[in-house]
Write a protein that binds this DNA or RNA. Structure first.
Lengths: 111, 111
DNA sequence: GTCTTATTTTAGTGTCGACTAAAGCAAGCG
DNA sequence: CGCTTGCTTTAGTCGACACTAAAATAAGAC
C-alpha cells in the first residue's frame, strides 16, 4: 500500500504495465536521477509488484499482476465489498442531489 | 488519493463508515491529541470524503460515499479495468504456480 | 456580559522519505 | 587483466507532514 501511494512509483508501474523495460529506459522516462528510479524499483521489488529478468548487464522490469492480488483484495476489503458498488452508490447519490437541485430551482422560480 | 494514503485517516473513515460520530468521540478512539484528529478531519473534509452535521457546539462526521465516487473510478482506471479482474488474474496465476509446484514435487519424488 | 464546552487553527518540533551525488558491484569486451 | 556499461547501494540534504501544545473561534448556559 505504501508502495503505490507514491505517484512516481505508480507512473513507473503504468510504464511497465504491458511491456517490460530496462531500468535505464525507465529512468530515461523521468527527469530524476538513475539512482532515484533504482530506489523506487527496489521498493516495488520488495513489495512484489514487479518481476525482473536479467540479460547481460541489463535488468528488465515488468509489472507483476499476480503480485497485485493481495493489494486488490486489500483495497476491496478496505472500500467495503466492491469498488463497483461504491461507484454505483456515488452515482445514485449524485442523481438524488441533482433531483434536489432541480426541485429547488423550480421552487425558487415559482412565485 | 493522498487523503487515504495515511493509515490514521483510513482508520477514521472506517470508524465513521456507517454511523456518524462527533469529533470528540472520534478523537477519543485514538491515542493522539484532539488537534491532530481535527487536522485529519480537515484533510478528509477538503477531499470531500466526509460530511459534517452541526448540532450546537458539536460536529458530527460521517463518511461520504458519494464523495468516494471519483476515488473509486480513479482506482479502477489506475488498476486497469476492474480490481475484480485483477484479483481473478492473481488467483489464476497462483493456481498456475501451485500446479508448477505440484509437478515439481511429483518429479522429485519419482526415481 | 462571563464561563464552559466542543472544535478549529496556529506555531513549532521531529520523523520519514524522495532525491542527488558518489561510491560500489556485476557482466561483457579489448 | 583493465575498461566500459548498466545498475545498485550508501551518505547526506531537504521538504513534506503527522504530531503536541497553546491560542483562537463558536455556541450554549448562567
Amino acid at each position: 500500500m505504501k508502495a503505490i501511494s507514491e505517484p512516481r512509483r505508480r507512473a513507473i508501474l503504468r510504464l511497465i504495465w504491458d511491456d517490460e523495460m530496462s531500468a535505464g529506459q525507465i529512468a530515461d522516462s523521468f527527469e530524476v536521477t538513475f539512482g532515484a528510479v533504482s530506489q523506487h524499483l527496489k521498493v516495488l521489488r520488495d513489495a512484489g509488484l514487479v518481476v525482473v529478468r536479467k540479460d547481460g548487464t541489463k535488468r528488465y522490469y515488468r509489472a507483476d499482476r499476480a503480485g497485485m492480488g493481495p493489494l486488490a483484495s486489500y483495497l476491496e476489503s478496505m472500500w467495503v465489498s466492491s469498488l463497483d458498488t461504491l461507484a454505483a452508490l456515488a452515482e445514485e447519490a449524485q442523481r438524488e442531489e441533482a433531483q434536489r437541485d432541480k426541485a429547488q430551482r423550480e421552487k425558487e422560480a415559482e412565485p
